[in-house]
Simulated assay, not measured.
Amino acid sequence: MRVLHVISEMGSGGAETLVAGMVSRGEEYGWTSAVASGGGFRADALAADGTPTFPVPLARRSKVGVLKAAWAVRRAIARFRPDVVLAHNVGASVVARLALAPGRRRPLLTVFHGVAAADYPAAARILRRVSDRVVAVSPATADRLTASGLDSPTVVRNAVFARPPVFGRAEVRASLGVPERTPVALCLARLEPQKRHDVLLDAWAAVEGDAVLWLAGDGSLCADLERRSEALGRRIEFLGTRTDVPDLLAAADVTVLTSDWEGLPLAVLESLAAGRPVVATNVGGIAEVLAGGGGIVVPPADPAATAEALNTLLSDRLTRESMAAEGLRSIERDYDAHTLMKTYDELLRLTLGGER
């Protein structure tokens, strides 16, 4: 089965991580994979490993941009000749539908990673028109799509494609100038409005002791957040886009995510798989992931609750270890990469067989 993934970019986000993992494991299930995207370090890594990659200009929600992106994806389809197209999120699905020329019928499946609450009705309306099947990455996301008018989205929970760290805790901390015993919280998130780093910085002002906050990611809010952090008088390190997430997780004590909305963030799953407890907002599928332990769920836009949770975990090693063990059990039980790949393989082959 020849599978073409269409996605806006292949940088450090969760959807990009999922695509890279699915491509890397696809051969085990009889897939020949390719990726059409706006590029990024994950696309470069896949190309270096021999995966066909095709450049697609970012659509940027303009009609001209969408048409240019569709023409690029059409060229990728002509060259790669996929059996099925797997589009990640709504914009990529629109582009892929426009790119699929009349004639030979190639199914288009959408993997829906989530949108802001106000955007669900529009997303459901578009996906009804362009997609042959919609896969939601968590039950919570599927429920919202259904409530917005999309019939029977399929749920396939995101999973962790584990990568071992290259360097250990002591080496990574030494490279970033952090002593061994200093508590470290790590936030793996693009510096964009959705992720609400402003809430995190307000919370960090109330975190006790000499703890250090690492912000791994880049984005449009970087300069503003750097100025804001300087006024706090606390140690906050902006690490930029990183390709060594397993190493950072090995060196951190906890991770934190203060998003306004999510689907099922890979950052949370990767943290639990690395044995790191999580403080995260109660949005999307996060509460479901942490229901069996593994971290503390806090309300969105609540710096006080976020600070209290961080203080609890950063100051209490036994609590961290207990939650880490619970998180690992959750990952092994419910978020296994083989289960994800097997389910997608069955879905794609079923759809190729003609069932919508």
Rank of each mutant, 00 (worst) to 15 (best):
S62V: 06
D44I: 03
A45V: 05
K63T: 13
A36Y: 01
G38V: 02
G50W: 09
K63R: 14
P52A: 10
A47K: 12
R61P: 02
G39L: 10
P52I: 12
S62T: 14
P57A: 13
F41E: 07
R42C: 01
P55D: 14
G50R: 07
S62N: 06
G30W: 05
V64E: 11
A43K: 00
Y29K: 02
L46N: 04
G26W: 04
F41G: 02
G50T: 07
T51D: 09
E27R: 15
E28C: 03
A43R: 01
T51M: 10
S33F: 02
G30S: 09
Y29E: 02
V35P: 00
A43D: 06
R60M: 08
V64K: 06
R60Y: 08
L58V: 14
G26L: 08
L67I: 04
V56N: 08
G26Y: 02
G65P: 02
R42F: 00
P57Q: 13
L46Q: 05
S62F: 05
T32C: 11
L46Y: 05
P55H: 15
R61T: 13
G30P: 05
V56M: 15
G50N: 13
W31R: 03
V56K: 06
L67T: 02
R42L: 12
V64F: 01
A59K: 00
S33A: 15
P52E: 08
A36H: 02
T53L: 08
G39K: 11
E27M: 13
P55R: 15
V56P: 05
R61Y: 13
G38Q: 02
D49L: 14
T53M: 07
V66W: 00
R42Y: 00
A34T: 02
D44G: 01
R61I: 12
E28N: 08
P57V: 13
D49I: 00
V35I: 11
T51E: 11
A34S: 04
G26A: 09
T53C: 14
K63W: 14
A43C: 04
A45K: 04
G39W: 12
T32S: 15
E27L: 14
L46P: 03
A34Q: 04
A59L: 03
A43V: 01
T51I: 10
D49S: 15
P52N: 09
P52C: 09
G39P: 10
S33K: 05
A47Q: 10
S62L: 07
E28H: 11
D49Q: 15
L58W: 06
V35N: 00
R61D: 14
A48I: 02
A43M: 02
